[in-house]
Amino acid sequence: MAETDLYAPVKAWLERLGYEVKAEVGGVDVLAVRDGVPLVVELKAQFSLTLLHQACERLAVAEAVYVCVPRRTGRASHKALQANIRLCRRLGLGVLTVRLRDGAVEVHADPGPYAPRKRADKAARLLHDFKRLQGDPNLGGTRGAVMTAYRQDAERVALHLAQGPAKGAEVARATGVPNATRIMADNHYGWFRRVRPGVYELTEVGATVTQARPGMDKAPPRT
């Protein structure tokens, strides 16, 4: 899929908006001018750092700078596109995509200043997880297996149950894990078994964990 395949649809779209359009002027992929004001479009077969570097350089000569890539289908492609759109908006860049089967141009973002909306709920959850995590058991940059606060709590509950079956309230008081009953009921790791209402014991897997205590987990469940 060549970058040149994107040019004709983008040119036609800009001309419908009243621009005069020319390609490869001064190293710019697409230069459009209307009322003496330039607009720049950088074309690439896919998103890359090179594309973003070029587009950011063009901000020195034009206030309106777009990047343009082919429009791809599929969930993974859509997710990647959304992430790249957010990044471009932070950089003040616009984003276009072209559907090659019919040349349709879609505007996903226009150039200009952008301030992302703050997520107080996510910030609060991040701080909550930070406080719950005991010590600093992980290495920064770890991919995949990490120790989580949820895993730590589950291990403390399992260690208490290693002494025998117990009620959820008793486990919570003894371990200092306020959501002990929910951890045992959810049984995310397969460590716990309900023997009667409100009372839990360790499974065979749970008993093994209390002996080995590997202390690693792929990802914490939602709590």
Results as ranks from 00 to 15, higher is better:
R89K: 15
K122T: 15
V30D: 03
G144L: 08
R86T: 05
T50L: 07
W191P: 06
A180H: 07
V10A: 03
L52R: 07
D186C: 07
V105C: 06
A124I: 02
A76N: 08
A60G: 05
K218F: 13
L51M: 05
R90A: 11
Q134M: 04
R213S: 02
L17W: 10
T181P: 00
V157P: 00
K122V: 15
H128Y: 09
V69A: 03
A23W: 08
T50A: 13
Q163A: 12
Q134S: 04
H188T: 14
A2P: 02
T148D: 04
G164M: 06
N179T: 11
R173Q: 09
V67E: 03
A174T: 01
K118E: 15
R143E: 13
A55Q: 09
P70L: 05
A124E: 06
P116A: 03
Q134R: 13
G190L: 04
A219K: 13
A207S: 08
T208L: 11
Y189R: 15
R125L: 15
T203N: 08
R117Y: 04
R193H: 14
A64K: 12
T73W: 02
L202M: 06
L133S: 04
R117G: 05
V95W: 08
Q152A: 04
A109Q: 10
A120L: 05
A104L: 14
V33A: 01
K22H: 04
Q134H: 12
Y200P: 06
S48G: 03
L127H: 14
A124Q: 06
L52I: 13
V107Y: 01
V41M: 00
A158M: 08
K11C: 02
E170S: 14
A80P: 12
R182K: 13
A23Y: 10
